[in-house]
Design a binder for these strands. Structure first.
Lengths: 361, 361
DNA sequence: GTGAAAGCGCTAACAC
DNA sequence: GTGTTAGCGCTTTCAC
């Protein structure tokens, strides 16, 4: 056979034991739909006491609790959260309406999920690919009487927002600057972010910048562009806008070709999102244009890949966890009559090799 | 100010209109908790007819439906899915228990969400970072009486699996080969996948391969390694196993250093997952070792980034969408007494530049 | 500390 | 077609 070689690495060297256990489990046959009434009959207590033993154990004597737990175990009883919710008007579920595409949203989603879990809440996911679906999705969310709703990046109109009947269900908009003033929102400071990146570029001597956006009609793009353009303008530098078509890698890759076709390359390219930036970077590389040698390049978001050695992108790092924490705080502490909060979290500039000139200036 | 330059790209060139709408919406003040009884009173019909108008519109005359819809709109009535579920014993929700970390799982999650949405079901997310949590999470899932449960990659013991009371709730394991025979499962054909990659490497003349795994105790690693080792052995090639410690980029990056420390570099490195492979690739590059010049390198999963020009990784592409479709089919068509299905979906080899030698041989 | 009883808002027979 | 009625499985007063 082979000459196997064992190499240690993370812990002690060890060989894979490839085992295959045979099946064969004793499963309870027909234990389905056991209710608190069954447990009551089994334990000799009333249904009410059984319910209390699970929902407010401190109201039940230890001995009783013990008896009931044994009966419940024996029958395989699991409390029914649906019935609890119907009565208590709380589901312990938070809905998240999130775009189906994009690295950034996936990370945000995971962060929401994790932080909600820490607070014993679950995340009901509603993803949408076409923002035309959002209205339908929102209706669907409302049917579930969730404890709150996170609305991410959906380009919802004010009319749709109005239909949400503020007050009936806490809602927080996430990275959707246009929602500001209508529903509570949490965003990174987009304008300050691109401004900070612009400052960095000016310090590197850039005078002529092209901003590559995803879609110009998104408020994200608008605000990020404006932040960059204003700051660059303040230093007498120019800032053009190039629309890539979407925030995806592929769009960035294609946009790179447009950049290369220009009469003269800009000093620097600011890209509206990291994923898009990776595409631009790779596209430019393919065309023989490299950052930082031929031009400087920045992203926005601070995705993990930006730190990967293959890219090492200068970008604005959003702390997604901290944003998510704000979202959830806002959602779960929602006072009906509080004024609308608009939380703007600053990001931090990460300087990578895409703007690090060996000979500075 | 600036010298702005407008550049067209995706569609026609256009400038960002940066507008900011002022707030001011008329929101219904106290429309909360409107029930079908309220709509009944408003419309003059019975509660049952109102309910029917929403749940089975075809059983209600058009005129009645119209009247009821108007009353409902006026009051802002939205059917309560919780109450519906309690009665109908269907929630239209599927739970997914998924690892919190890892590109691959994030993509899978999104795919589940999208495909469930197409079937008018929602996804209740339970993510876990520590697999010790899984048992607790599973208990939590069961309380919600969801219509089904997707169990991804959780290293669940047979005892835990037994607690799931097969029959009470349809469950499908996703990419968790160890579940095979106990609960229905869907996985990519891991062994055939690494075998195919191994064949490809042998064809490129490789004789000495190191397999970089994430964690050796995972069945994923074991099966992938075995598939590779057997195929390589068949061709008289050697296959060592190196454990990186996890499936993350960072682990791969560090593992690269261990590879470089070996007395002699292998001909090829097969990495157990793409994300890990990106780390290995970048780590090796940093150390001046490049693929395909110094050694060949393969990944596994077929993440989008594998196709990015920066990596262009040879890998085994799993069609996550097709896997997810099988999972959902299995879940929603679950016959109580069907024998346990184990679906294994083949992957396809994607040849990238990490195994493409300019001078072949 | 425990039990009895009244719902939470809907669905699904069953009558008419 | 529409109304009446009886629950779904829990929580939550209110007695005792």
């Amino acid at each position: 056979m082979n000459d196997y070689v064992v190499i240690g690495c993370s812990s002690s060297p060890r060989w894979c034991a490839i085992s295959r256990k045979a099946g064969g489990l004793t499963l309870s046959d027909e234990a389905r739909r056991v209710t608190s009434v069954d447990v009551a009959a089994e334990s000799g207590f009333s249904q009410a006491t059984v319910a209390r033993a699970f929902s407010s154990p401190h109201l039940v004597s230890p001995a009783t609790r013990e008896t009931i737990e044994q009966a419940a175990d024996k029958l395989g009883y699991i409390p029914n959260a649906i019935a609890r919710s119907l009565k208590s008007q709380r589901t312990d579920i938070v809905a998240a309406v999130v775009p189906a595409q994009g690295e950034y949203w996936q990370h945000a989603l995971i962060s929401f999920g994790r932080q909600l879990a820490e607070r014993d809440k679950q995340l009901l996911l509603f993803s949408f690919s076409d923002s035309a679906d959002v209205a339908r999705v929102i209706d669907s969310v409302q049917q579930y009487r969730v404890d709150g709703m996170i609305l991410a990046s959906a380009n919802v109109t004010q009319v749709q927002l109005a239909r949400l009947n503020r007050g009936a269900m806490p809602i927080v908009a996430f990275n959707q600057p246009a929602a500001s003033g209508i529903i509570p929102s949490v965003s990174v400071d987009n304008a300050a972010g691109t401004a900070a990146l612009a400052t960095h570029l000016v310090e590197q001597g850039c005078r002529k910048v092209t901003f590559v956006g995803g879609r110009s009609e998104t408020s994200t793009d608008q605000i990020r562009y404006r932040g960059a353009a204003q700051e660059l303008g303040r230093h007498g530098a120019a800032c053009a806008y190039l629309e890539a078509g979407s925030f995806s890698y592929d769009s960035g890759y294609k946009a790179a070709a447009h950049l290369a076709e220009l009469d003269e390359l800009p000093d620097a390219v600011m890209v509206s999102g990291d994923e898009l930036a990776f595409g631009v970077l790779d596209g430019l590389r393919t065309l023989g244009i490299s950052a930082p040698d031929d031009l400087l390049l920045t992203g926005f978001d601070g995705l993990p890949q930006a730190s990967w050695a293959g890219y090492d992108l200068t970008t604005l790092v959003q702390s997604i966890d901290s944003l998510a924490e704000h979202v959830i705080d806002l959602l779960l502490s929602a006072q009906p009559e509080t004024e609308i909060a608009d939380i703007v979290v600053p990001g931090t500039v990460r300087v990578g090799k895409t703007t690090r000139r060996l000979s500075n200036g």
